[in-house]
Amino acid sequence: MTTDEKVVLEVDGLRMRYGSVDVLHDVTFQARHGEVLALLGPNGAGKTTTIEILEGFRTRSQGQVKVLGTDPEHGDERWRARLGVVLQSWRDHGKWRVGEFLAHLGTYYAAYATPRIQRPWNADELIKTVGLTEHAGKKLRTLSGGQRRRLDVAIGLVGRPELLFLDEPTSSFDPQARQMLHDLVRRLVGTGETTVLLTTHDLAEAEKLADRILVLNGGRIIADGTVGDLAQRIAGQDEVRWLRGGQRFVERTTDSTAFARELFARYGDDIQELEVHRASLEQTYLSLVHQAESTLEVTR
């Protein structure tokens, strides 16, 4: 495998402008083969715009973009066959039946099977995987919101994509369906053939699934790293509580271990009921977004 193949997604200096409004400013990131990358951010941050540019559905204003080694604006059918797309909501093909539709869509991918990747995914097997077997004969428009969403994910997978885009995949999922999707994504990634880019505003989901998290806010990437990296980037996030001489103390620190060591060195046995609370991703994320927003206020 060459180095080019290892980088599946390459975005450099991406800008998007509608009229005089900049929606994305200088977005730069990469995704490596087999990685799960979460694009996290509040509504209106530019997540969907970014993903639509990568899918080849939207023409960017500026910057370099390579998806599976190809500029999405010039992607051909072979390139298209290697992608899986799950949009935020689909209502198409309401008259078609679940099994019939998946089997039909699969035929489009058969010509693109390779010795390594068998295409398409067998429809019955796929329906079973997403838990829709008992609804296989139903028309799409009669499915409930959650069932439809599972089908959307199945459709995204029917061509056994090398790169899967999941735009807010678990919105309108019940906890069970969410678990199913998480298992499915982990299983896909486990095969080592699929790279996943997902957008979400559900932090727990990003934490659970992603190898790496990009935080997008106001059209800028304000953080890029593993869950651990992100937690560390924020100063004063770990919370240390203790009891000394009948009095309660709370302190925030970046290095809770060193802080505790010093605490014991100074007071020894006087320290009681020591608690260290690691920064949760949620706190990290909120303070990142908050920080970015206050910097913007200042620069304005």
Binding site: A81, R91, Y108, A111, I155
Partner: peptide
């Protein structure tokens, strides 16, 4: 109608989807 409900977009997201 197919544009409104996304059927056409589905075709666009599928290889050879538009001619088919």
């Amino acid at each position: 109608a197919d544009r409104e409900d996304g059927t056409l977009l589905r075709a666009k997201a599928t290889p050879h989807g538009m001619p088919a």
